[in-house]
C-alpha cells in the first residue's frame, strides 16, 4: 500500500477464502430452500418406486445378476437425476444474482466475481452430491439385499462417472445461467437441452447424418450406463433399417466419454466465468 492510500479497518482475505465463504453461505441457502427438498423428494420417490416395483414383481431379467440389477437401477436413473440437479441448482445460480438482485448484496464488496462464481458452483456441487449420496445409499441398500455385500467394481466406476458427469452438467448449467439475466430463460434452456435437445440431436446426428455425436455431452454420459453392462457395447454398430437404409449407432468408449465430459466442463466453466465477469448490473 502506498503512503497515500488509506489503511482499512479489516484485512480482506484471499480469493480462496472468499470462495469458501461464498460456498458456505450459498450452500446454507440451498440447503434450506424448497428446491433442495423437492429434489430430495423426487429422489426418494424414484427410490421408493423402484424398491417397491422390484420387490413386488421381482423381474427375473433385472435380478438375473448384480450387474443387470445395478445397470437397470443406476444406469437409467443416474443420468436423469444429474440433469435435474443441474436444472435445480445451476439453472438460476448466476442469472438469479441479476434478476433477484442478490448480486448487489454479494458483489458490491472487495471480492472478485470469479470467487463468487466458483463458490456458488461448489455449493451447487455439494448440495447435489448430498442428494446423490442418498440415491447411492438406497441403490446400495437394495443391491446388498438382493446380491449381498460383494459389489461389482463396475458399479463403483459408474458412481464415479456420475459424479464426474455432475461436474460437467453443473459447469454447463452455470454457463447457461451466465448467458441470461432472467432465471426462467436460463432454467428453460437448461431443461430443454438436457432433457430433450441433446438426446434428439444425438439421435439425428448418429442415425441420419451418420456422424459420431462426440460433441454432445449426453453422448459422453452413455459411459455411466454402458460400464454396467455385462459386455461393454461396441463403439460403432450398424443395422439395416427400412428398405435400403442402414442405421449406425455409436457408443462412446470410456476414454472418449471421460474426454467429452471433461471438455464440456473446462469449456463451459471458462465461458461462464468470462460471461459473468463481463455482465453488468444494469
Amino acid at each position: 500500500m502506498s503512503s497515500t492510500q488509506v489503511e482499512s479497518a479489516s484485512r480482506v482475505p484471499s480469493s480462496l477464502t472468499q470462495v469458501r465463504v461464498t460456498m458456505k453461505y450459498t450452500f446454507l441457502d440451498y440447503f434450506r430452500s424448497r428446491r433442495f427438498f423437492i429434489l430430495l423428494a423426487i429422489v426418494l420417490l424414484i427410490s421408493a418406486a423402484l424398491t417397491i416395483v422390484i420387490g413386488y414383481y421381482r423381474p427375473p431379467g433385472l435380478l438375473s445378476s448384480d450387474l443387470s440389477f445395478y445397470s437397470s437401477w443406476w444406469g437409467i436413473s443416474a443420468v436423469l437425476l444429474t440433469a435435474l440437479f443441474g436444472i435445480f441448482f445451476g439453472g438460476d445460480a448466476i442469472s438469479g444474482e441479476f434478476q433477484n438482485r442478490t448480486g448487489y448484496f454479494s458483489l458490491s464488496h472487495p471480492v472478485r466475481r470469479s470467487s463468487v462464481y466458483i463458490g456458488k458452483w461448489l455449493a451447487a456441487f455439494l448440495a447435489s452430491s448430498i442428494i446423490l449420496v442418498v440415491f447411492t445409499a438406497v441403490t446400495l441398500g437394495n443391491g446388498v439385499y438382493y446380491f449381498g455385500s460383494s459389489l461389482p467394481y463396475q458399479f463403483g466406476e459408474a458412481v464415479l462417472f456420475t459424479w464426474f458427469y455432475l461436474v460437467a452438467v453443473l459447469g454447463s448449467t452455470f454457463f447457461f445461467s451466465s448467458l441470461f439475466k432472467t432465471s426462467s430463460y436460463a432454467i428453460l434452456v437448461t431443461a430443454v437441452l438436457f432433457l430433450f435437445a441433446f438426446n434428439l440431436i444425438q439421435l439425428l446426428v448418429a442415425n441420419f447424418a451418420q456422424i459420431e455425436p462426440w460433441f454432445i455431452l449426453t453422448y459422453g454420459s452413455q459411459i455411466i450406463g454402458n460400464v454396467l453392462m455385462a459386455q461393454y457395447p461396441a463403439h460403432i454398430t450398424t443395422a439395416n433399417g427400412f428398405g435400403e437404409r442402414t442405421f449406425t449407432s455409436y457408443n462412446a468408449t470410456i476414454p472418449e466419454g471421460l474426454a467429452i465430459i471433461a471438455a464440456y466442463f473446462i469449456v463451459t466453466a471458462i465461458l461462464g466465468l468470462v460471461l459473468f465477469e463481463r455482465k453488468e448490473f444494469t
Binding site: 440451498y30 440447503f31 430452500s33 438482485r101 442478490t102 464488496h109 472487495p110
Partner: peptide, 18 residues
C-alpha cells in the same frame, strides 16, 4: 479499491433462506 468502502447500491436482496 473497495477494501475500505461500505456500499449500498439500489436495494439489494439478501439470500432469502439466510
Amino acid at each position: 479499491a473497495l477494501e475500505s468502502v461500505g456500499t449500498l447500491i439500489e436495494t439489494p436482496e439478501i439470500y432469502p433462506s439466510l
